[in-house]
């Protein structure tokens, strides 16, 4: 079983961080995993994306060109990658930032207003974690509790305020009904 995930959006939305959380959880679940970021000027604004492949077999190409799951956090990413999702795949789009609807009828479409939810809950900057919550719900890829546990363990004790915010953001994303 191999799951190819593509996360795409603007630099600064926490695309690479979100991908890293998935990769870390996969590693601790004794799965094979690769995390390949776009690098260079993208990291300083503009388009950012990252390929995460999770598998129980050796991973060949680490580049995701036909994702099983696309997480699109802005319109350019939606336009560019939505057509590449494999039939039967999953699209998670931030509907606050992407007004356009997918016209595909061969994929599962999950639109959640992640950026809006973040703003309403004073969790600006945590839209990426809200999306991760919804991803866990939609895919069942990892157990919610162990994902949360690992994410929190990665936060230094000196930044304890972040722990609470991450917890809340993940829960908001996980419980949101689309």
């Amino acid at each position: 079983m191999t799951t190819k995930i593509l996360l795409a959006g603007f630099g600064g939305q926490g695309i690479l961080f979100a991908g890293k959380q998935l990769a870390k959880t996969a590693m601790y679940s004794d799965l094979q995993v690769s995390w390949l970021p776009s690098y260079g000027p993208e990291m300083r604004g503009g388009a950012a994306n990252c390929s995460v492949i999770i598998s129980d077999e050796e991973i060949g190409s680490p580049i995701v060109t036909t994702p099983d799951v696309l997480i699109a956090l802005n319109l350019p990413s939606f336009d560019k990658f939505e057509p590449t999702i494999v039939p039967g795949g999953l699209l998670i789009a931030d509907s606050t930032l992407i007004a356009k609807e997918s016209t595909r009828n061969d994929i599962r479409i999950c639109r959640l207003p992640a950026t809006g939810l973040a703003a309403e809950n004073k969790l600006e900057g945590f839209a990426n974690v809200i999306v991760l919550g919804q991803l866990l719900k939609q895919t069942g890829l990892f157990d919610y509790a162990s994902f949360l546990d690992l994410m929190i363990k990665g936060i230094p004790a000196s930044k304890s305020a972040l722990i609470e915010k991450n917890k809340r953001a993940l829960e908001i994303g996980y419980t949101y009904e689309v």
């Binding site: 890293k20 990769a23 590693m27 094979q32 995993v33 690769s34 995390w35 390949l36 970021p37 690098y39 991973i59 680490p62 580049i63």
Partner: peptide, 10 residues
């Protein structure tokens, strides 16, 4: 190459 340098794996 740049991909191997930048990518993460266990």
């Amino acid at each position: 190459d740049g991909a191997l340098g930048q990518m993460m794996e266990p």
